[in-house]
Structures are given as C-alpha cells and as structure tokens.
Design a binder for these strands. Structure first.
Length: 560
RNA sequence: GUCCCAGUAGCUCAGCAGGAUAGAGCAACAGCCUUCUAAGCUGUGGGUCGCAGGUUCGAAUCCUGCCUGGGACACCA
C-alpha cells in the first residue's frame, strides 16, 4: 500500500519542496487514536525553517492538500492528520488479500539467498527440556519468516552429541549403569546417571578427570566408548522426533557437534598458519585483545572444545550452503561465545563472518532461577505439551462436542497455546516458567487467535461466501480491521529483518481483537446489501490470520 | 571486579529510528448467550514509566551517574 508515500509526496508539494521527501516520510507517524486519522505529520521541525508556529504550518499544509485517496486532511494543533478514503482503501486492501491469499505480505527482499538457522540443538542423552523449546520455536518461526521475505531457510539441528559430558556419562554408565534399565527407559535412566555423576563428583573431584579421560577416548575412536555413544544418540533421537512431530517441525540437517569431529584439525591448521594460536596455561587459545577474553581452542590434554567445533561448523556451513546469513538461535548466556567465534573467524580473514548473527533469547527460569539439568531441575516439554493437549480436549468436549477430528484439533490447539506463549513476547526477555500461563487459552493466547479464525471460517460457511464480488461500501466499524490488514506486509518485513517473531504474534492478536470487536458490533450474516462486502472482509481476515499463525508455526483449524 | 541485558498498572508484558490524553492481557468488580462458536464482547477501578541529573520546543523513549535483579567472564556447552 502506497498511502504513506502518497502523503509524503503531497507534503513535499504543499511545502514547495522546502523539505525533502526522505525527511518527510520518516516523520510521518500513525496516530495513537483512530479518531485522529490514519497518518499524521508533526510540524514542529518545519517551524524552525519557516518563521511560523507549527499550528499555522499545519493549517497551511492541510488546506493545500487533497487527493481522491484522502477522505479528509485536517490540521489538529501542530499536526496534519490524514483520513484515508475508507471505501477505496478497503476495496483495494481486501481485493489484494483475496487475490494473493497466502502470498499476501510476501516479498523478495531475500533474493533467494540461503539462510542457515542453527536451532533447537538439544543435548543427546538428556530429556528435551523447556529450555530447548525456546530455540526450537523461535528458530522455526524465523525460518518461516525469512522464507516469507524471499530467503531460502536451512534448518540445522546442531545436536549436542559431543563433548566432555559424554565422557562423564560413559564414566557414570561404566560405574553404576545397568544395561537392562537403560534399554527400558533410555533417557530417564541416562539422566539419572548424569545427575548421579554430578552428585558424586562434588564429593570426589577425581571423577571429573575420569570423565574427561573417557571423552578423550571417545574422541580418539575407542570402540567401546563409541558403541555406548552411538546407542545413547540413537535412543535420544527417537525421543526427540516424537516431540518434533507433535510440533510439526522438520530439519534440513541434523549434523550435530560430532559431525565436525574430523573437521577441526583443519581449523587448527588454519589458525596455526596465521599464527593466531598461542599457548596459555597449557591450553591453546586465540588472543582477542583487551576487550574480549581469549577464545579457548584446545584443552591441556589436547581435546577439543565447543569453540573449536563451532568454528569448523561455521566454515562448513559457509562452504556447503554459501549462506547470505547464518543465524544461531541460542540463549543469551552464550553471547560471549558467539562474539569470540565471529572475531576469530574475522582474524582468519573470513569476511562472511559479518553475516553471522547470534539470535539470542532469554532464559526459561524456574522460580526466578536458572534450571539445571545437573541437579535434575528440569521441566519436560513433552509433559507440558500433553497437558496442553489434554486441556484442549476437555474444552472441546465442553464447548463443541460434535466437532470432527477432535484429537487432531486438540493437538493443534494445545501445541498452539504452548508455542504462542513462547513467541508473543520479545525473545530477549527471560520467561519464568508457569504451567498455568502456558496452558491459558483466553486473552492474549494462541487459542484466542485460533478461535477467532475458526469463527471467521464459520461465518463464511454459513453465509455461502462467494468470491469475486466488488465492494461498494463497508461498515464504519470495519475500518480498524481493514487498517490492520493493510499493515500486515510491513509487519512481516519488520519481523523478518529484526528477527522478531513476536511482532507477528502481536499483530495476529491485534487483528483478532479488532475482528472480534467488529463481530460483536455488527450482525455479519444479516441479509442486506452489505453482506457480500462483509463476507469478503471476513475472508480476508481468515486468510491473514491463518498466514500469521502459520508464520509462527501454528495451525489454524477451521472449526474448534 | 569487568562486560551485557532488564526495571512501565497487583501480576505478565506492549510502547523505546523523541512528538498529541502512557496501552493490552490476566486478576477484581459490574453487565451481555431464544439470533453468526461466550476459547468471545462491553464497562469500572488501578501508573511518581527504578532514582537523580542532562540534551531538546517536546523524553517511558536519547546521554551520564546511581540503585535493584539476572546473566556472562579458561580448559562445560
């Protein structure tokens, strides 16, 4: 929609080019209150150029301006307020949505460039906790968003399947493990062993050394260690896939940390070649100057570290995918790590490191504190999802017992509640875990938006909606709905360029609120001359809600 | 100690490329289902925008300092 641009052009004309178009369009704002119009231009700055009061300037500008797209232009104090022509605009917007359907809001900003997205990345042999939910859900939404604006997303599940923790686990298994028990309940039993290890290690620090030694064996290919590792990995993946299926998330690659095991030597050689590797307290590090702590590359015992593997992974991704951007959806607490990673890559001469972005997010806290796997203080995602689905089922039984496909829809709603709860706020905020909040279905929630969509669909079914009618006139009450629909492409663009799915979440909430209000004020199915125009608006709302929900990874059932 | 992030209504949060009366949801209270799904809508009460300075015609928004909370800071990831 070009109405803002049109307003800016008219302003340039009205002030005889005293101020440039670029300056003007930047200052145009959307008034806080609908009663003040659709766009506003504050005249304070102009008052400095001309020797006139802002109020006077606003009056002059307003009187000089008219266009068929503008219903009214008026000066209110120091502002020029524009009211768009509702009939024209509503007709334009609704037709655009109805003709483009799911493509409405799409763009080609990305020019087909590849965007690798490192997301989810749970640790093998540990339960899939609420903490990993955030990375999974945010990463998936970003993949969908980035695709919407013309990039080609590549979802990489960088499994935590390597590292000293496996040495610890292998050590624990050798000491206290019971094969039978592990076969029966792999993850649960492995978690018990992991917790046990840390309990014992507090009393007997020698265990830590044993754990490190076991990892070293694994890294060097010791057959027995590798056998255990393979087994743990296999079983864990089975469990993770069950959860990913539930959430409808797939990956383009599940190359975890282990995949880079044979690619690290090359990185170390590159670092040596550039004389970047220095010895420090027995370890090998890259010095990053005063402001940044050095990046550890190799431990005293020669074993690799997280940074080493991530360097190899970054290079591998660049060489494999030739990405235009590389995103890492990883918690706040790893900010320093990514800063170091990017700096080391730059020291290696890789300019593309500038296109790597740490998409940080806040932690999932429990009672205001960090959850710790080591102490067994984790909330299991699968349990939360099951509860949410169960609750959705109960709601359906109570409210719409004749619904078909109850269990499918209950799953879509239950999962929707959990995902939306994670996405609706700025990703950088910490979230204190609250099952109650997560299961909520009223107010600012996923099910509220889904419900609104289902209601719109219901109207369309009952009203025998036909495509292709023209819009003569629409209710006054519909204007805020039309305005929301009109803004959708801008919201998509902003959400994508700022890596911020919450903007989509907020948008679908606002659209839902506007639509529900309209729905409450106007009897949409009343037989009169407005009916077809109304149904077209309802159809446009349903399309945009569905697309907004899709971008967040939620389903939009037609009935619920 | 150094660095990063946050502090807005009882609670959870929007708003923060400076602009017109600071907005939602939840919770509380009061209404609305013989008519389109009440997972909804309407109304009421509730705010020194952490504190103190500064920049500006104008600051919740930008700058500085302080307070409070959280996180990171070498062989975990």
């Amino acid at each position: 929609m070009k109405y803002k641009e049109l307003f800016a052009k008219k302003l340039v004309q009205a002030c005889n080019g005293v101020v440039e178009y670029g300056d003007l369009i930047q200052r145009i704002e959307i008034p806080k209150h609908e009663s003040l119009g659709d766009y506003a231009f504050p005249c304070f700055q102009l008052a400095k150029f001309e020797k006139m009061s802002p109020n006077k300037i606003a009056e002059n500008l307003a009187s000089d301006m008219n266009d068929p797209s503008f219903e009214k232009v008026e000066a209110v104090g120091p502002y020029v307020n524009v009211f768009l022509n509702k009939t024209t605009v509503a007709s334009d917007v609704i037709h655009l949505v109805l003709s483009q359907e799911g493509k409405y809001g799409s763009s080609e900003i990305g020019e087909g460039g590849a965007v690798t997205i490192d997301l989810s990345s749970p640790n093998i042999a540990k339960p899939f906790s609420m903490g990993h939910l955030r990375s999974t859900v945010i990463g998936n939404a970003l993949a969908l968003l980035v695709e919407k604006v013309g990039y080609c997303p590549i979802r990489i599940n960088h499994l935590g399947d390597w590292g000293t923790q496996f040495g610890k686990l292998i050590t624990a298994y050798r000491k206290w493990g019971n094969e039978q028990k592990v076969r029966e309940q792999t993850i649960k039993e492995l978690l018990n062993l992991y917790i046990l290890f840390h309990e014992k290690a507090e009393l007997d620090p020698v265990l830590e050394d044993e754990g490190r030694k076991a990892f070293k064996e694994l890294e060097q290919g010791d057959p027995e260690a590798v056998r255990l590792w393979d087994w743990f990995r296999e079983e864990s993946l089975k469990e993770f896939n069950r959860i990913y299926d539930l959430m409808g998330i797939t990956f383009d690659s599940t190359n975890g940390e282990a995949f880079y095991n044979d690619k690290m030597q090359r990185v170390i050689e590159m670092l040596e070649e550039k004389n970047l590797l220095v010895e420090s307290n027995g370890a090998m590090v890259v010095d990053l100057g005063e402001d940044t702590p050095p990046c550890l590359i190799k431990k005293k015992d020669g074993a690799s570290l997280y940074a080493t593997r991530d360097l190899a992974a970054a290079i591998y991704r660049y060489e494999t995918y030739d990405f235009s951007q590389s995103l890492y959806v990883v918690g706040n607490e790893q900010s320093l790590h990514f800063k170091q990673l990017i700096e080391v890559l730059k020291k290696l001469g890789f300019d593309w490191a500038d296109h790597m972005h740490h998409i940080n997010f806040g932690m999932m806290l429990k009672d205001g504190k960090k959850m710790s796997t080591r102490k067994g203080k984790v909330v299991l995602l699968e349990e939360v999802l099951s509860e949410a689905i169960e609750l959705a089922k109960e709601n359906i039984e109570a409210k719409n017992p004749n619904l078909e496909n109850k269990s499918v829809i209950a799953q879509q709603i239950g999962v929707g509640a959990v995902l939306f709860h994670d996405l609706k706020n700025d990703r950088r905020n910490d979230i204190d875990f609250s099952l109650e909040d997560m299961l909520r279905v009223e107010g600012e929630t996923g099910p509220y938006v889904q419900y609104t969509h289902a209601r719109a669909c219901s109207i369309l079914r009952k009203g025998n909606y036909q495509k292709g009618e023209t819009i003569e006139e629409l209710d006054e009450e519909a204007w805020s709905v039309v305005t929301k629909l009109r803004h959708f492409p801008n919201v998509v663009e902003r959400a994508a360029t700022e890596y911020d799915p919450s903007q989509i979440a907020k948008f679908v909430l606002e659209l839902s609120r506007a639509f529900n209000k309209y729905y409450g004020q106007v009897r949409l199915l009343e037989e009169n001359s407005s009916k077809q125009a109304r149904l077209q608006l309802v159809s446009a709302v349903a399309i945009v809600l569905q697309e907004g929900l899709r971008l967040l990874g939620l389903h939009a059932p037609k009935e619920m």
